[in-house]
């Protein structure tokens, strides 16, 4: 479903991703772990199309389309979703107006008829319940005054509304307490199907207790240097990254 081939990306002339390969099939959950500065958040930003990052080489295929040819909004239309590590507060833009605009534009991109007000509202209600986000969204500005946990739940709520094919969760667990973590993970598990796939970027094994990955990858110096199943995450939790770094340095000698 998602195929990343030899992806190189840099920011301000500094190369961060140095030939990253990844293939994800429908229905799969892939976790990406790695030490600080290895390029995890850069990968998320590059996939979503953040302008500051320059892709110097490589391809990112979503089914039969190279996402790198598309603008951020077109990528969303194609079915990519990024749950932000730091969701932005946008005072003055109401959640409802934001979601209505997003859903209608994405539906329009996908060739679907616009939702009428009633169906939209019932969809909002249903998806809000999914992440136990009980805020009255109508008169709230996007993320403004939301607690850390609410912001992350709001990301999963938006994901549910936009029904992506590929969802990238960028450290969604950071700053969450155990309850919020469980709610977020349950939301993700309910959305998981054979028509979509997940890339879960995280520092901690804890999240993977709740969202069980099919594969765990270790990203180091801009490349995936090790791939395993969920037991790899446990091993990392126990031993840290030094043994992997050593392996990489050793093999490159």
């Amino acid at each position: 479903m998602l195929r990343i081939k030899n992806l190189h990306a840099s920011i301000n002339g500094k190369e961060i991703l140095k030939g990253l390969d990844l293939e994800i099939k429908p229905g799969e959950v892939h976790a990406i772990m790695g030490p600080n500065g290895s390029g995890k958040s850069t990968l998320a930003s590059v996939l979503a199309g953040r302008e500051e990052y320059e892709v110097t080489e490589g391809e990112v295929w979503l089914e039969h389309k190279n996402l790198l040819d598309f603008s951020p909004e077109q990528r969303a239309g194609e079915g990519l979703f990024l749950a932000f590590q730091y969701p932005v507060e946008i005072p003055g833009v109401s959640m409802m107006n934001f979601m209505k605009t997003a859903v209608q534009e994405v539906r329009n991109y996908r060739g679907l008829p616009p939702l009428d007000a009633k169906s939209f509202l019932s969809m909002v209600k249903e998806k809000q319940a999914l992440v136990e986000l009980d805020k009255k969204l109508a008169n709230r500005s996007v993320n403004e005054g939301f607690s850390g946990g609410e912001k992350k739940r709001n990301e999963i709520f938006q994901m549910a509304m936009l029904e992506p094919r590929v969802a990238v969760l960028d450290e969604t667990d950071s700053g969450l307490d155990i309850d919020a973590l469980r709610i977020v993970a349950q939301g993700v598990n309910k959305l998981k199907s054979n028509d979509n796939c997940f890339v879960v970027i995280t520092h901690y094994q804890r999240l993977l207790d709740y969202i069980v990955p099919d594969f765990v990858h270790v990203l180091y110096k801009g490349k995936i240097v090790k791939t395993g199943d969920k037991s790899l995450a446990l091993e990392l939790e126990e031993k840290g990254y030094d043994w992997i770094k050593e392996q990489v340095e050793h093999s490159s000698l």
Binding site: E51, E73, A76, I90, G92, A102
Partner: peptide, 28 residues
């Protein structure tokens, strides 16, 4: 705000619409 603009775009909102939403929000 470029961060806010990217956030809106990443949800499928086209650049002109996103800009207009932020201009209206600034005025609000």
């Amino acid at each position: 705000n470029q961060e806010a603009l990217f956030y809106l775009q990443s949800r499928g909102i086209s650049l002109p619409t996103a800009r207009n939403m932020l201009i209206a929000a600034f005025a609000s």
